[in-house]
């Protein structure tokens, strides 16, 4: 692979990692109200994505990959809802530790990173086709 193709491959790995992040964010958003079924059960726990640099030995490039999807260990929120089947003796229900504002910010960040990677591909492709144009 030549350098420009390599840079495209790296950008693609970045886009893949970011889309994985978006998948986890949407999982969090969708489950923002998933409480437990029983009083002693736990509600949905927010998940977070971490990234790592990964050496692609075949091409000698550093790709990016999703390291691990971990659980967010922060405390659950509480809501007063005595009619809920998951309510404890005092009438409180544990709700997921998902903050939709935080998730929206994360989503925007992922989108920006995705755009940046997309720009890399566009620029690299432009340069490559320019080189081909030299043959004319």
């Amino acid at each position: 692979m030549d350098d420009l193709q390599k840079s495209t491959a790296i950008a693609v790995s970045g886009m893949k990692a970011q889309s994985e992040r978006v998948r986890v964010i949407s999982e969090n958003m969708a489950n923002a109200d998933s409480t437990a079924q029983t009083p002693d059960g736990l509600p949905y726990r927010r998940k977070v994505v971490t990234f790592k640099t990964e050496l692609d030995r075949a091409n000698g490039i550093n790709r990016v990959a999703v390291n691990k999807v971990r659980n967010d260990p922060s405390d659950f929120n509480k809501r007063f809802d005595p009619k809920n089947p998951a309510a404890d003796r005092d009438g409180y229900v544990l709700t997921p530790n998902v903050n939709s504002l935080v998730e929206m910010m994360d989503l925007h960040e992922a989108q920006r990173s995705y755009d940046a990677n997309m720009n890399v591909i566009t620029t690299s492709r432009g340069m490559l086709s320019q080189t081909v144009q030299l043959l004319r």
Binding site: K6, G14, I61
Partner: peptide, 20 residues
């Protein structure tokens, strides 16, 4: 050659813009 190589390095930086 230099620019193409630089493009590769910059692509790496951008792809890793969220890596701790």
């Amino acid at each position: 050659d230099w620019i193409a190589k630089r493009q590769e390095v910059l692509a790496q930086n951008i792809a890793n813009s969220d890596t701790p």
